[in-house]
Simulated assay, not measured.
Amino acid sequence: MQALVDYQVPEDGPDHGYAHFYEETVIECVFLALVTVATRPGVRFLAAAAAEVLLDRSLGFTTDVVRGMALEDVLDNRAAPAAWEARRALWALAAASRVPHGGDQQWHECMMLLDRALCQAGLASRVPDRHRRGARIVTVAPSAWRALLAERYPDRPELHHPPLGTLATRCTGCGQLRATGLDLHVDPWHGHEDET
């Protein structure tokens, strides 16, 4: 991760293939840094470094490179605001990697997702890195869960309406939303407690 913190933009060279490979490596480092922030306490500086690297990118070129990369969202994150914002940045990067190559519409969609990842990474570097004491799990209106689905899957409107009987809850400590069916005996918050 130190390589990401010490990252310097190289001189432009004539080898476009090398530049493409180099850009992929940089995006992978950004992704791994955000995964670390989402899953480990005390490393918010990596979110700041990731945001700085994304800010220095030529988004037009990065947009062409990130599409087709195998970036998968992490399955879970810590119960801390910084971890939650880092995961939102990871969602955006993973979504950008799934945008197909096509016309201007796809190019702009991918660029907006990269810009969103930059904003969320910057936010992850500024919000608390510890779970607030006295946090509770509270029930929220279904509209909050629909809004989260629309944010996570902007291009999949069929997913924006959860099945009937879905119970959405929110952690007052980190703000995360989770949902489960009323007929399922599953605790969606199992293991949510922060490690520290």
Rank of each mutant, 00 (worst) to 15 (best):
T166D: 02
L114W: 04
L93P: 00
A70L: 09
H160W: 11
D12F: 15
E72S: 09
L159G: 01
A92G: 06
A150P: 02
V37K: 01
D64A: 05
Y153Q: 00
S58A: 15
R88P: 00
P162V: 13
A49C: 04
H101P: 00
P154R: 04
L93I: 12
L46T: 01
Q120E: 12
W107F: 14
E24K: 15
R57V: 07
A79V: 03
L182H: 12
H16F: 14
G60E: 06
L90E: 03
A49R: 04
P100V: 11
A141Q: 14
F45Y: 13
R116G: 11
E195H: 02
D73P: 01
A117M: 07
M111L: 14
Y153F: 13
G191S: 00
E151V: 04
E11K: 13
R98W: 12
A144W: 12
R67W: 08
G173M: 14
E195I: 01
A80N: 02
D56Q: 14
T36Q: 13
L114M: 07
A144F: 13
G181E: 02
D15Q: 05
G68P: 00
D115W: 09
A94S: 14
A48L: 10
S97E: 07
G191V: 01
G191R: 00
V35Q: 09
A38L: 08
V140Y: 10
G68Q: 04
R133L: 15
R87L: 07
L75K: 14
R132N: 09
T169C: 11
R146I: 04
S97R: 12
V26Q: 02
V9N: 14
A141F: 06
A19C: 02
G60W: 10
T25D: 13
H161W: 14
A96N: 04
P154Y: 06
Q105W: 11
R152G: 04
D104R: 12
G103V: 11
T63A: 10
P142H: 05
H101T: 07
A50M: 04
Y153T: 00
R146H: 09
E151D: 08
L90T: 00
P142I: 02
P81M: 05
R156A: 11
T172D: 07
R170T: 14
H108I: 10
E11N: 09
F21Q: 08
G103S: 08
W91A: 01
D115K: 11
E151R: 09
D183K: 06
P100T: 10
G103Y: 10
T169G: 10
V30I: 15
G191E: 00
A3K: 09
